[in-house]
Amino acid sequence: MVRCILASDMHSKSYKLQVTSCKLVICCLQCCLFPILLLTVFCLLPSVSHAELIDKVLAFVDDTAITLSEFEEVYSNTAKIKPDIKREEVLNTMLNRILLLREAKKLRIESSTEDGIIKEYIELKIKTFIKVTEYDIREFYDKSRSEFGQADLDDVRDKIEDYLVENQVNRRLKMHIEELRSKAYMKVIGR
């Protein structure tokens, strides 16, 4: 660009040159100062105020907190297995686990994993009190006979028993959790 100007009429261009020298400076500024400014801005960036949340309490059960990051981790892991799961469902499960683990601790139940502790707690506190009688099995078999086709009661007895036990476990566990929830101070703070 400079070479091009120098090649033109010197007289008529003397003023132009002065103007051009200013342009040159601007051009230099464009060439060199711009990166400097960019760098300066880059260097100063950290001091520009912009609040970023590192972590916070999302919900609590008495003195046990669930943090946002903890929830997000559990949610993303759960969503990989069950993509349509809602965030509320995951949070509710986390709160229920806290309640059950806390009760299990009172009974000094030990296991290498939290799942193991909860399983043992349910076994002890819920399953122990469930009794499925021969009458229950037969009643269920009679009611749902069409679903069993030609199978005799003896063939499906164990399956029916397992099903009825599981049903009752779920029902009682739900009631038990409701009871625990009513006694605890729980709150979902939200984001």
């Binding site: 105020s49 609040a51 970023e52 949340l53 590192i54 972590d55 916070k56 309490v57 907190a65 709150k187």
Partner: peptide, 9 residues
């Protein structure tokens, strides 16, 4: 009831 940790920079 709540604790949140933020950064300004």
């Amino acid at each position: 009831e709540d604790i949140s940790v933020e950064t300004d920079d």
